[in-house]
Design a protein around this nucleic acid. Structure first.
Length: 238
DNA sequence: TAGGCCATCTGGTCCT
DNA sequence: AGGACCAGATGGCCTA
């Protein structure tokens, strides 16, 4: 992050959040089926390219209704190491870390999912971007990796990303906000943390922030407050 | 309904 | 060789 100069231009999506300026995507929501409320879906078995992991019916995987913080399906029995502080870091319900019900998409639309078929049913008449995506996911050839190793790598990657999310949650709890339940995006967390650290450094009369060295403590506090307000407005729930 | 945000999958690259 | 890290692509969820 380049300096705590908190720009309150939250409207612009983080240009590099995914590494590049997001190309103009067409309508992301296909609206093929009514949106499911979040409280009706929680623990969802992932598509998980391997047939062994998707042995059960995906429909029966949507359980545990209610606002309980969902736990991740046990991709590996010993996974979910819950690193980072935040004590055990059961993921807060405000930060769903949602496991999107991708499986339902596959099962409903394509429902083949035969891992053996190289081009398995690619000639289906879906002919949509979804189908292209499905066909891509049905590829058996993961470059030089076996499917088993690919699945394992996916699990590790999920664990890694979960650790990052848990760290963000720990950081969110460490920075000031309007309320404990205030919804903050990761970008907002970073912005508030920057301004908060700047304020604390001013308070401690530490001068390791270069670019804003002329700001007084009061100005830093104002900046911090403004950042919280801006992010709170952007991410207000309800 | 568009846009923001997120999780997931995937392949490439780097590191041990 | 295998794991960690990273970025791109994609679709789901949610809000204005």
């Amino acid at each position: 992050m380049d300096g705590p100069a908190v720009e309150h231009t939250c409207s612009d999506g983080p240009p590099g959040l995914h590494g590049q300026a997001t190309p103009t995507r067409k309508n992301k929501r296909k609206m093929k089926e009514p949106r499911k409320r979040k409280d009706s879906v929680s623990v969802v078995k992932r598509p998980c390219l391997d047939s062994s992991a998707s042995d059960s019916d995906p429909d029966e995987s949507t359980t545990e209704s209610g606002g309980q913080p969902r736990e991740f399906p046990p991709e590996t029995p010993d996974s979910t190491p819950s690193p980072c502080g935040s004590g055990g870091s059961t993921v807060d319900s405000r930060y769903p870390l949602t496991v999107p019900n991708v499986y339902s998409r596959f099962s409903s639309t394509f429902q083949v999912e035969t891992p053996d078929s190289e081009t398995g049913g690619l000639d289906q008449s879906a002919s949509s971007a979804e189908w292209t995506m499905s066909a891509r996911k049905q590829r058996k050839n993961y470059k030089n990796m076996t499917r088993e190793r690919r699945v394992e790598a996916n699990a590790r990657e999920r664990t890694r990303v979960h650790a990052i999310s848990a760290a963000f949650e720990g950081l969110r709890r460490a920075v000031p906000s309007y309320s404990y339940n205030q919804r903050l995006s990761k970008l907002a967390i970073l912005r508030i943390a920057c301004s908060y650290i700047l304020s604390l450094s001013r308070l401690a009369q530490l001068d390791y922030s270069h670019d804003q060295s002329r700001m007084s403590f009061a100005e830093c506090v104002d900046l911090c407050t403004d950042t919280i307000q801006a992010e709170g407005r952007a991410k207000r729930r309800h």
